[in-house]
Design a protein around this nucleic acid. Structure first.
Lengths: 196, 196
DNA sequence: TGAAAAAATGAAACTAGTTTAAGAAATGAT
DNA sequence: ATCATTTCTTAAACTAGTTTCATTTTTTCA
């Protein structure tokens, strides 16, 4: 709105795909947001803490993971450009999370703090629709993930995933991909050795 | 609204937990709904067909499942009282589904057809909020399910599930529980034999 | 630039869960 | 009541993926 380089542009563009906001509504919205650079390996959330905000990723990559009973990192979610990421269980209940959210690379985020989200939605009700549609998309993706995990063997998941997202598969360390795909790094090495 | 036994009461009660509707809004809403009795084993959706509606379950139980590459039924979701169920991927895109939705028992549903959902939301914008909150709950549950599946062994999943939902575990055939929990009925029998 | 840390590979022993196949028990329709 | 279908169990052989541990390669950063 003012000349400050529009640090929220990526989010405003994303919202415009779903709802049309008046300039005045955009102004209100921006007054509720804040922008943050998150250096690689920084944690936005750790177990025992309450998830403080819903994070919109302008650029970079975050991961959501927890430690399993067998003490392994289990990645449940990667957050990329134009996705919101949070532990919605903790965010909604304001109870302590079991999860980590960590930057995989240097990442730019726009945050909407839990404490003000309801106030924002009361002031700009059109955003109810926007967030409904965002959640619809997220829920659908989550269902697809459950299907993916149950439908294919580890080897097939790896092959299909790298075929579908070749650039992303390069972007994260292999052990993170293995975790996300639901097997060990050793098994991934085995698969790759077999392919050559 | 009129004296017709309030077939939509369960849904109206559910909505009232999240938003307050005026009598006039309730009237509009009800004009968009329809009620249906679904006999056990009836399919509401089959592969190749487009998911026609979002279904609210007043009573009974539905299951959402697909056939895996190894030709097994894989249940991804059970729908119980006061949950909405649909293949949101197909519902949103109006493209053919890969899924079945089938009644596990005689079930009463209230349906909101895909073709009129947008019109309803335009006329009763408060429902944007209601459906946002419903999706938030569904998405959170879906994330918990992914965590559950990745965190525990098959045996632990069975033990924890039956401890948490003893009545539900009785309500569905064991082979459905096995599928939902991500293993074979034979393995489930093995677990039970071990417990005795 | 070089030392330390992080990430990836390899191989052998192992195990959680599958597969196949057959029979037993329960449920449902007539 | 009875036959047919659906659901559940048992057992043995098998396999996809894990575990453990050692080695190599790559990245980080002072």
């Amino acid at each position: 709105m003012n000349g400050s380089l529009m640090i929220y542009q990526s989010l405003l563009d994303h919202i415009r795909r779903y709802v049309d906001l008046e300039p005045s509504e955009i102004e209100v919205l921006c007054s509720f947001l804040s922008h943050r650079h998150v250096a690689k390996k920084t944690f936005l959330l750790e177990p025992g803490k309450v998830c403080a905000a819903n994070y919109f990723i302008s650029s970079g990559c975050l991961r959501l993971f927890f430690i399993t009973t067998s003490e392994q990192e289990q990645i449940t979610h990667f957050g990329l450009e134009n996705w919101w990421i949070a532990d919605y269980g903790s965010l909604t209940s304001q109870r302590p999370s079991q999860y980590y959210i960590q930057a995989v690379e240097d990442t730019e985020i726009i945050e909407l703090k839990a404490s003000v989200q309801d106030e924002l939605l009361a002031k700009v009700p059109k955003l109810e629709r926007y967030f409904r549609l965002v959640l619809l998309r997220a829920y659908t993706a989550s269902q697809r993930r459950i299907e993916f995990m149950n439908n294919l063997s580890g080897e097939d998941r790896y092959n299909q995933f790298t075929a579908m997202f070749p650039d992303f598969a390069q972007r994260v360390p292999l052990y993170m991909l293995a975790s996300y795909l639901g097997f060990t790094p050793q098994f991934l090495s085995k698969i790759r050795a077999k392919r050559n």
